Amino acid sequence: MTSLIKTPGAAVSTSSRGTYTYIAAYSAVLYTVLLIAPVIAGKLITQFALTPVQVGALFSLELGAFSLATVPAYLWLNRVNLRTATYVFTTIVIAGNVVSGLLDDFGLLMATRVVTSLAAGSITVIILTLSGKTANPSRAFGVFVVCQLAMGALILAVFPALFSQAPVSAIYWTLAGLDVLCLLVVNGIDGNALRQSIPRDHTRARVPAVRFALGLAAVLLFYVALSGVWSFIAQISAGAGIDLSSSSLVLSLATVAGIVSALTATILGDTPQRKLYLIAGYAVMSISVTLLFGTPGLARFAMAAVIFKFAWTFILPYLLSTLADLSGGGHIMNTTNLMIGAGFAIGPVVSGALIQSAGGAFTGMLMLGVVGVLTSLVCILTAQRKVVHA
């Protein structure tokens, strides 16, 4: 007689598959609006007669709202059904994109984009937290990174040509259509995953608050370093006399390398070698930044850019899964979303100030990158140290 009792392993496997699908779909679609910023920017300038400052303010507000969604999530994340929350937030995102395509007033557009980004950021909080609750967090975070990169590559290849003659409304309405498709995967997650009273590990370690702080600092410094360097990598190329076509080819190859490394981390998943992988990834990332010092030729620049992107996307899943282990996937992953946004905001500003103060030289900015990467490594290794179990 066939047993009708499901094994725990099967339940976890089924739940994880649904969660992975949810993570894949939403991480690819929600980050699209940030990835197509260059495509939207030109059309907004033309349609609304905007200045570059106004366009920059719009995207800064969107990114800021995306990150600040973390704050209200402290109140609702562990109290609501995640399926219901996702349906509500996705509906807001869909409506926001539809309305954005209808507006002809820039002030109203900014307000609409902020509300839309708050809803999208709220779903991202769910993604990050659920990733830490899967049977294999490193793999889940790998899926999170891979799908963003793959969508980014697709956008760079298809969107400019597809929407070259279309108004900005066509882009926003396309995003709304993609958001509708995401609704098909919502039932794959456990809506009560964060409301369950029984911990997944009854012998869970007691982690001192300083470990949480170090883990969050590692993420913040990592993003400050990578965004600071990556934001100006094209300028480094131009300063070294490398022509635009060669530089663009190198950056395209770097994107491919990033996808390959994120896929590698996804396939490897959680492993006893995670600490070793982190050390190796951080070391390689530091080396790639040092290759940019001076006036790199095309070969050295290509090597630095490809290695930098490869290391960055290989490190990230293991960095995030380390934080998930510290908290069991709780509010620390919510706070991580804020650290990511803060790092993205701080890095380019500080790097730009260093470049300007040095009269256009990149030495100070690159030194900040190396120090940020190495300090992030020290923080995450310290946070990983063994703790006493209850």
Rank of each mutant, 00 (worst) to 15 (best):
T14I: 08
A119F: 10
N136V: 05
I23Y: 15
V39R: 14
V53E: 12
L354P: 04
R274M: 13
Y172L: 05
L63R: 02
A254Y: 08
T19R: 03
A205L: 12
L184I: 13
A120N: 03
T322C: 07
S288D: 02
V260C: 09
V80A: 14
T266G: 14
L108V: 05
V219A: 07
L251V: 05
G372E: 10
F48Q: 12
L323D: 02
S286W: 07
M365E: 09
S131F: 04
I5D: 08
A25H: 02
A37Y: 01
G101R: 10
V98Q: 09
A170C: 12
T124Y: 02
V146E: 02
L154D: 14
G364I: 09
T264M: 13
V55M: 07
K309G: 13
I340F: 02
F163V: 00
T46G: 11
F141R: 03
F222L: 06
L366A: 12
L44G: 04
R211C: 08
G258L: 03
T91F: 01
M333K: 01
A257C: 12
F293R: 06
L149T: 00
A257P: 15
V80N: 13
A11G: 15
I287G: 13
F310N: 00
S261W: 01
D105R: 07
G121V: 03
A69F: 06
E62G: 08
N187Q: 14
G152I: 00
F301A: 11
V29F: 01
D201R: 10
S247K: 11
D325C: 08
L194H: 14
V114I: 15
P72E: 07
T116Y: 00
F163M: 00
S67W: 02
A57K: 04
S288Q: 01
A305G: 06
G359C: 10
Y318A: 05
S248T: 10
P52F: 11
W230Y: 11
